[in-house]
Design a protein around this nucleic acid. Structure first.
Lengths: 232, 232
DNA sequence: CGAATAGTGTCTATCAGACAATATACG
DNA sequence: CGTATATTGTCTGATAGACACTATTCG
């Protein structure tokens, strides 16, 4: 049998791309949420995202970045695919699939922009349950948070929640906020050195006590994955 | 602005679900491939998969399982989402997205079935480059293989390439085939014990020397992830 | 017995945790 | 100096690698 493909043979699922953009701000893990202006779930908070525009986006990565840029005005320094979520009842319009990306950014790099708009906000992940969240986005955020927590144990990705120059103390706080547990400063320093991902800056900053060394990410380095997890 | 959703506002991308089903057979990592009966890439080998049937499948997981079952007659004991692959040129029909699953099965559980058909075969991953592979499926298989190799270093998933009862020697061979490097039998035994995922069977089997203890997976256990990788 | 494979014992290497010791700001 | 934070030194603990040693089966 040599059937030709018939575009109408199947009802196509609704397909969207959403992003979970995290940062650490005020000692809490926050996620970028958008107040929905359209149905369904109008007025609820939802993840930034939307439909692929196949005339503009040549991959779904581009869709995710385009939608994030609409809300934050910049591209996050770290983004990866999380997972697709699908079901016949997650969207009242019918079977839908959302491909979810998971991204990190320094809050300083977006706050100036989102302070000018009403409908985009950093929301503490621990306050989601007291808000009206669109679709299954709360569940999706939980899954993204689990992934971030895992990654924080074996990689340096949390550094992408910090601005260009940062101290070990800041990185330690960010990691501790993400995994919800304190870590050994010494272990962190060992990893910073072993990873060879970072360069010291010829400058130190005040910190309440001894001045702290500034670091930055070396240009064009890959994220190092360690062979052991930090303890949980 | 209160725009209503307009199904025709965007050209919907083609959306498919494909699976990379691996097994270890004849001391080689093999992937289940299907000879394509339809355009595009008719006559080439491709991954088992297809369109979501929203009248039957309530999630994409169901689509993956349904398509695998069509080709193998059974559901694999291990399946997880790998990743979505998208681009405007991976399919000649236009922008397309494929959500790819990654699954493992014992070859004994499918071989009897696929031996009766012409268009489904286990193909050695190292022989793919000499064949005509549809779409970007060769690249997708490489990505799935990398994921499997990583997982083999910190979890017991390779056991799902073995039948119900298996020996430590068989598991060792499967892991070594997957990661392409020999491992310490002792390390494997330590992990089998620490994971508490397995029960010994009151039976031993011939192996050329001393009889080997049979193991099986305890019912309803979760896959244990270790905090360290085996060395690479 | 010898060859082959299964399984154990045990020493080493690596790296995270714990925490003491030292360094450097600032008032 | 006292307090606070940064940074280093070093000991302990957990687990993987290496590999010798023992056990069991078959011809």
């Amino acid at each position: 049998m040599t059937e030709e493909y018939d575009i109408n043979q199947f009802k196509n699922p609704l397909f969207t791309v959403d992003s979970v953009l995290f940062t650490v701000k005020d000692a809490a893990l926050k996620v970028l949420m958008v107040k929905r202006a359209n149905q369904p779930f109008i007025g609820c908070w939802g993840l930034p995202g939307g439909f692929v525009d196949i005339d503009i986006d040549d991959t779904t990565d581009k869709t995710a970045l385009r939608k994030l840029k609409e809300k934050t005005s910049i591209a996050p320094p770290y983004i990866e695919q999380l997972q697709a979520f699908s079901s016949s009842d997650r969207d009242p319009r019918g079977f839908s699939v959302t491909l979810v990306y998971f991204a990190l950014i320094a809050e300083q790099d977006v706050s100036s922009h989102i302070d000018t708009v009403e409908d985009v906000q950093w929301i503490d992940v621990n306050q989601l349950k007291s808000l009206s969240i669109a679709f299954d986005h709360q569940y999706i955020i939980e899954q993204a948070q689990l992934r971030l927590q895992q990654k924080a144990l074996y990689s340096m990705v949390p550094v992408y929640c910090l601005p260009e120059y940062f101290t070990i103390g800041q990185l330690k706080t960010v990691i501790e906020t993400i995994i919800g547990k304190s870590i050994q400063r010494k272990s962190l320093i060992r990893r910073i050195e072993a990873s060879e991902m970072f360069a010291t800056i010829d400058e130190k900053v005040k910190s309440g006590g001894r001045l702290a060394q500034l670091y930055k990410i070396k240009p064009d380095v890959d994220i190092v994955n360690f062979e052991r997890n930090l303890s949980v």
